[in-house]
Amino acid sequence: MTDHRPLHGYSDIAAVGALLADATRARMMVGLADGRALPASVLAAEAGVAASTASEHLTRLVEGGLLSVQRSGRHRYYRIANAQVGAAIEALAVLAPTRPVRSLRESTRAAALRRARSCYDHLAGRLGVEVTEALLERSALTRVDGVTGTQRAHGDPMSAPLPQHPYRLGPNAASVFGELGVDLDAARGQRRPLLRFCVDWSEQRHHLSGALGAAVLTRMESAGWVDRPGTRRTLRVTDRGALVLDRVLGVDLPG
């Protein structure tokens, strides 16, 4: 009997690499790495190109499956296609050479990005790792592989989502997340996994992602505990947020 099922070869990584090899498209992808949707005009300005040029690049990214597009009125809004693409962009940061810092302003922005940022839709940077560590210390999360805290285990990648993670909700999950104002039941009701973890590219330690990680960041932004003072991806802990994080989790404002 003849098998008419299609044959599938290796993943064509080169096709994705070609899309990201262009500096303009790469800047657009980084500009969207916080998970928000932006119009083409804003992306053109961030990439420093004309609107017509931006449109050509955005079309290629959409056709390549890296971005999705939605029309609203006269404008088209672009966003990262899914969490896997967002995680891939974050992971590539550890492999990419660091761009030379040519000014004090660029140096300040780079330090702020390492200190606290969004990784697609959850906390990353030093703040993201410290919050995850605090959740472990307060038994809102439990690690079950014998490794201490948020340290990378042997064999973990340098920067990437963990396909299999060694964490579970801890005995104090309901009380700790409840004190933060995070609805565990609502997070459980999402179609995506409740718990996921990434190896943070700047800290080389684990931070919380998944539906619960997204719920934590959403709560922190809606409560005014963090804001985005500069680039959309950089986060800043507000004075009010510093008090809450210190009281509930014992997390100090990252310096």
Rank of each mutant, 00 (worst) to 15 (best):
P254D: 03
H122L: 04
V147P: 11
S103R: 00
R71F: 00
G86P: 02
E56F: 05
V16E: 14
L194H: 09
A21L: 08
V182F: 04
G125I: 08
C119Q: 12
D239I: 04
A14V: 13
V251F: 03
R60D: 13
R114K: 14
E90L: 11
H206Y: 08
A23Y: 00
V251A: 08
V248Q: 01
G210P: 04
V244G: 02
T148H: 10
T150I: 09
S68M: 11
F197R: 11
R152M: 08
R247W: 02
H4R: 15
L235C: 04
T24L: 07
V101M: 11
S202G: 01
S55N: 13
H75I: 00
G241A: 08
I13T: 12
V237F: 07
D156C: 06
A44H: 04
L195C: 05
D22H: 09
D200C: 09
R99T: 14
L180D: 01
A33F: 02
T24Q: 09
T218Y: 05
A87C: 03
M158L: 15
R109C: 00
G73N: 07
R143V: 04
Q204R: 15
L127Y: 04
A40I: 06
T108G: 04
E179W: 02
C198S: 10
E46I: 12
R5D: 08
V101I: 15
M220V: 03
R5K: 15
L67T: 05
E130L: 12
R60F: 00
A51V: 10
Y78I: 09
D12W: 05
D156R: 08
H57E: 11
G73H: 08
D252V: 07
G9Q: 11
G35N: 10
T234N: 14
R168V: 02
